[in-house]
Each structure stands twice: as structure tokens, then as C-alpha cells.
Amino acid sequence: NKFNKEMRNAYWEILHLPNLNEEQKNAFIQSLYDDPSQSANLLAEAKKLNDAQA
């Protein structure tokens, strides 16, 4: 299933973003579980936030 793979990839990438705190990571990961079809968008948002907090 495409979403499972996308979701897993997004999950791991978000988990390893160095500039997000636990609360931010948890919020993105919760959103992933709530709507796996948004994995790519959530990952993009997480990366933007990560870069902004660098």
C-alpha cells in the first residue's frame, strides 16, 4: 500500500529532523496517523519548520 510506505518514510524522516523538539515531532507524527494521505505534505511542512529553526 502506497500510503503505508509514504507514511513510514515520512515518519522516519520527521523523527530524525535535528531542529524539531519532541512536541513538534509528536504533532507531525500524530497528523501522519490521522491522515496518511497527507504524508508528503506533512513531511514538507516538517522540513520547512526544521529549516526555519536551524
Rank of each mutant, 00 (worst) to 15 (best):
Y11G: 02
H16G: 10
A54W: 04
N4D: 15
L15Q: 05
D34I: 14
N41M: 10
S39I: 15
D51R: 07
I14T: 02
K5S: 01
L17P: 00
L49F: 15
K47V: 06
L15M: 04
L20E: 00
K47F: 02
N41W: 14
K25I: 05
Q53D: 09
A52P: 05
A10N: 02
A10I: 03
H16S: 06
L15G: 02
K47T: 02
Y33D: 01
L43M: 05
N26Y: 14
L20V: 10
K2T: 01
S39M: 13
S39D: 01
L49I: 05
L20A: 03
Q30G: 07
A52M: 10
S39R: 06
M7G: 01
Q53Y: 05
P36W: 04
L32N: 01
N50V: 02
E13G: 14
R8D: 02
H16W: 04
F3S: 15
A10E: 01
N26M: 13
A27M: 12
D51W: 07
N41H: 09
A44P: 05
K5M: 00
I14W: 00
F3T: 15
N21R: 12
N4L: 08
S37I: 10
I14L: 07
L20W: 00
A46T: 02
A10L: 02
E22A: 11
A46E: 00
L17E: 03
A10G: 00
D35R: 12
A54M: 12
E45Y: 08
E22G: 13
E6T: 12
R8N: 12
D34T: 13
I14G: 01
N9T: 10
N50T: 03
M7T: 07
A44G: 14
N4E: 15
A44S: 06
N19D: 06
E22S: 13
L43G: 03
N21F: 12
L15F: 07
K5T: 00
N50L: 03
A27G: 06
N1Y: 00
Q24G: 05
K5L: 00
N26V: 14
K48A: 07
Q30M: 14
N26E: 08
